[in-house]
Nucleic acid binder design. Sequence first.
DNA 1: CTCCAATCTTGTCACTGACAAGATTTGCGC
DNA 2: GCGCAAATCTTGTCAGTGACAAGATTGGAG
Lengths: 188, 188
Amino acid sequence: MGKVESYHHGNLRRAVLDAALAAIEESGPSGWSLRELARRAGVSHAAPAHHFGDKAGVLTAVAAEGFELFAGALERAAGDPYGSGVAYVRFAVDHRAYFEVMFRPELYRADDPELNAARDRAGSVLAASGRKLSRGEGEDRATTLAAWSVAHGFASLWLNGALPESRGQADVEELAREVLSVVFGGAE
Amino acid sequence: MGKVESYHHGNLRRAVLDAALAAIEESGPSGWSLRELARRAGVSHAAPAHHFGDKAGVLTAVAAEGFELFAGALERAAGDPYGSGVAYVRFAVDHRAYFEVMFRPELYRADDPELNAARDRAGSVLAASGRKLSRGEGEDRATTLAAWSVAHGFASLWLNGALPESRGQADVEELAREVLSVVFGGAE
DNA sequence: CTCCAATCTTGTCACTGACAAGATTTGCGC
DNA sequence: GCGCAAATCTTGTCAGTGACAAGATTGGAG
């Protein structure tokens, strides 16, 4: 038979994080309780607190992990501004739970050092993409922000169901590429 | 002296809405309780329920009112795509509390008819701006979405403090105009 | 083997959203 | 004016929640 019940869970931290991610995907970053995560992980209601402190602690961990995955995804597309834009949207859609927490600082502790390191890492890649995109135009900052805004705005609108397209069976990446190419002038 | 205390509040619905807007501005759409709104309005803890049903009811009313104000702001700039983009960002910044609820459908009842009417009204103006913006390019939908995305993305990033600029004393509208002009090709 | 620190449990408290039942007031028909 | 139904507000209650405190269990360093 399976594992014997033991007093110690073994990897409660990860189990709670995974439960949180699943819960966020189902009902948003506020649609669940710490006690529910504990139940899903099969531990007592106060066990998660030891690893995360409080609810904001769980969300801080989610955001930190999210920014790390995000930085990784962007770095993989570094050098290609258009590809970075696509990667941005891809990440938001594929890792919806992370994305929905990452850009809502009131949910977590924004001064977390690990989180800020990953966030800055992602920021550098974006800035580099922006510089490359606007080479020679002398409008670095505005171009970078515009590119960032399109990717972020499209992803947000898609995720919250504001786009009629997200109701149908439309292909996100296909649509994202069309939209991004308006700003990035990418190969269509 | 002032008004005599009466059993009936007089305009509790509005008082609760205003309290909600203030609370949202202070601590986000989830950072307060119905009971707190009741206290701010000086009524018993269950009074608001009679006007709104439950918490989602309050947020539904906020979103509906928000979409109406939003539609009005966009209509006032109708005909000028670039101006519509500026109005979009202006609205988000000036009416942060509304904006933060409007695009988070999991917070309210998305099937509210009054809300949907206002939402569609705003949608029409945006679509018209998009058509005008892309006249002759035969890329209506992509251009419309790109313009919408830039405005929405910039506003979102600004509001959640993701832009370094939003930390300083930068002028939102000034920066917004620069960013929007990258996509809208507007007069800079 | 011992003991300490990490991990988990049990118990508790104030607060919350939702609901039910009753009190007060308004205003409409007449 | 008058009575009465409907709207408005209050009081009371219940399960669920986040946070904290104190105690039980366990693994690992030495």
